[in-house]
Design a protein around this nucleic acid. Structure first.
Lengths: 232, 232
DNA sequence: CGGTCGGTTGAAGCTAATCAATTAGAGTGG
DNA sequence: CCACTCTAATTGATTAGCTTCAACCGACCG
């Protein structure tokens, strides 16, 4: 691939500390591909062959065991995934599929590891990146462990509301089936949870949600920066 | 502290790539302290002031929100905790308390960050360490999300059995109250889960558990290396 | 028009938490 | 050594939370 094909990649914090020549080397080895929706990009258990970036579209990370499946995260532009497996030269712990037509950048894992060995700035950027990932999963874990389904939904709505400009409405980032899985519940349960939140001023209109009584919703949700704030 | 006071620390993979003079600098700044049981070492939400190591004893990492509490992990010698918060110069996401009389090594966070900036080998060791932590939490998350309480217990017993030499018995690493919280259930529920596992050859004798029918227990548990194997 | 799919609703059942009571064990002091 | 106490652990009854199965609705599409 050409080095300057994707200037937004070079801007990522992951590559902030990397020397130009090493970045160029990575990009030359990389593949940029378009995928339709619902394509399996990786299968948990497979050896980590590539580091992935979502340039356009959306990718869903999920896992399954003995018949049960759960979505762990959605990755949107410009986000990476599977960095830890690539660094450890291990198998993927999560599967990934596109949820919509997507443009994906793939860097061969060995090139990433070589760059990690050779480029001190890159190594430091990876530290910060992984520390952030780690803390994000810890928060997800706490969310799932310490809250009921209704509370998780309420807090998620408040979080989206903050990220979307606090104008009283929220646009859901995906269909409700996917949202339910992200929140660790069934679609039926999400539907009922929205029903419960009616009493707290939550009005669902398709993929738009109105928050007409943020105060009472917040009282119910008890948002906690150590779980909900992406910055901490 | 004297540099050679704790040779086992220098052996840790976290310091494997570190230059001697930098390690000495860290150790000189470090504190080694003895604590009785049930001492709060850190409080979630506080700024990360130290990187911690358990030299002797045991530390419990836990979190709470709106009245509910859950143990996330036990740390035993020689293990570190709170590395991600130290590196990101952020607040702790988990609280920590000693569960028994313990000897704890504390390195001031700023010294760790300075060493991270100055020592390339240390930076790379941190990458590997954090990647391992990240994958460990992802596995915990999957365990909690995709399995019932009985399944989590069954798989945990099988894991302990493997780690303890596969001789048909398992020694529980902590009291049952703590174990229940690690497994994400109440003590009552753990007790009932053990009751359920009787039918699969599991016999509880205090803190020792006999696995008399590993085959049927395994059939029930359906262990998955992508959740249960600490190596992958 | 029938078909599929996302979403909702209802009923039933399961898993787990809660509350309450009891038992078992470890340690203490007489 | 025995009663006493404190806590861990268990057991039973009840309730809450969530899943499952089934039916249904409405939108979109061939």
């Amino acid at each position: 691939m050409r080095v300057d094909a994707l200037p937004e990649i070079r801007q990522l914090s992951l590559f902030a500390g990397m020397r130009d020549e090493n970045f160029e080397g990575l990009m030359k080895a990389a593949y940029l591909q378009n995928f339709p929706a619902q394509v399996e990009l990786i299968d948990e258990g497979d050896q980590a062959d590539f580091l992935f970036f979502v340039i356009e579209g959306c990718v869903e990370l999920y896992a399954e065991t003995s018949g049960r499946e759960g979505v762990l995260a959605l990755v949107r532009p410009v986000g990476s995934f599977i960095l830890a497996a690539v660094i450890k030269d291990a198998v993927y712990l999560m599967s990934a599929r596109t949820t919509e037509k997507s443009r994906i950048l793939m860097i061969p894992a060995q090139n990433v590891r070589d760059a990690f060995e050779q480029d001190d700035g890159f190594a430091r950027s990876i530290v910060v990146e992984l520390a952030g990932y780690f803390r994000a999963v810890v928060k997800e874990y706490k969310d799932l462990r310490l809250r009921t389904g209704v509370e998780r939904l309420a807090n998620r709505l408040i979080k989206y509301h903050l990220n979307q400009g606090e104008n009283g409405t929220v646009c859901l980032p995906c269909d409700k089936k996917t949202l339910s899985s992200i929140l660790g519940m069934t679609p039926e349960n999400l539907s009922r949870a929205f029903g419960t939140l009616k009493a707290y001023g939550v009005k669902v209109e398709g993929s738009v949600v109105r928050l007409n009584d943020l105060k009472s919703l917040t009282t119910l949700a008890k948002p906690n920066p150590l779980i909900d704030d992406y910055r901490t």
